[in-house]
Design a protein around this nucleic acid. Structure first.
Length: 270
RNA sequence: UGUAAGCAACCG
């Protein structure tokens, strides 16, 4: 409908808490509050607004109220959106708890999207037991061969510091992306094993800036600016993270001149 | 084209 298209256009914009309240009012007036297309986008918008100091959770609370009120709230896309909204708002426990509620709902069917957000929530909150449960559900539901589901499980175990579990899953993957390799490299680096980090970095079939940034940061954290600089020089495309990682490394070594030189010549500053 | 996984510092 025309009003639906208007809402879609409004939700594409960068919104504020105030503009979202207006859009919500417009949706109510137009009887569009249970339109699944609009509702998923609305919830995503709620989770991505700038947080206000007075009420940082206003957006996510608004999103969850709408979700709970929706008659078709067992819709898989809608549920996945709500789970991710909790993760984006750093409400990891709420994410896992919502999943546990949804499992009691016979109409809810989780998919590979569901499990990647859940694994992320467990990884970021170091929720080991919840993570085990999610891993079991991935196995039971047959999504362990999915690229996103398995990569997020590798990342989850890496964040737990369980590199042998991460590595086992990585080895069992039938398909790997740049993200899968980077997650493993970063895991080894953060757990103090630069040698394995470098080994898998070198074996990565393709490397993007995140692959390099992770390996550079591993050297930076060790104070090995020589190795960091070599990789920085050889990488084809440097982004703001690459430059900031190097600058931070030189600053921590007390080499402010090198840091300042990089700062001055970096093409885009954030 | 209604939904998903990786990297720095800053700020809290």
């Amino acid at each position: 409908s025309r009003r639906e298209r208007t809402c879609l256009a409004l939700l594409q914009q960068r919104n504020t808490r105030a503009s979202l309240l207006q859009i919500h009012a417009f949706m109510l007036r137009s009887a569009l509050e249970t339109n699944l297309n609009l509702l998923t986008r609305f919830i995503t918008a709620c989770a991505s607004i700038a947080v206000a100091v007075s009420d940082p959770l206003a957006g996510i609370h608004h999103a969850r109220r709408l979700f709970d009120r929706c008659p078709r709230r067992s819709d898989t896309f809608l549920c996945n959106t709500m789970l991710k909204a909790h993760v984006d708002s750093r409400q990891f426990k709420e994410c896992v708890y919502l999943y546990q509620l949804l499992r009691r709902d016979a109409d809810f069917v989780p998919d590979n999207y569901t499990f990647s957000s859940l694994a992320k929530a467990c990884g970021l909150s170091l929720g080991y037991w919840e993570g085990q449960e999610i891993h079991n559900h991935v196995l039971k539901t047959g999504f362990s061969s999915n690229l996103f589901a398995s990569t997020s499980l590798v990342d989850m175990y890496a964040k737990f510091g369980l590199m042998s579990c991460a590595r086992k899953l990585f080895d069992e993957m039938t398909e790997r992306s740049q993200v899968s390799w980077t997650v493993l490299v970063d895991g080894y680096a953060r757990n103090g094993d630069v040698d394995h980090a470098r080994k898998f970095f070198d074996q990565s079939p393709e490397k993007d800036s995140a692959s390099y940034n992770v390996m550079i940061d591993a050297y930076v954290k060790l104070g090995d600016m020589g190795s960091a600089q070599s990789l920085f020089d050889e990488m084809p495309l440097r982004n703001a993270v690459s430059w900031t990682t190097m600058i931070d490394g030189y600053c921590n070594k007390g080499d402010v001149d090198s840091a300042r030189l990089l700062f001055d010549i970096m093409p885009e500053k954030n």
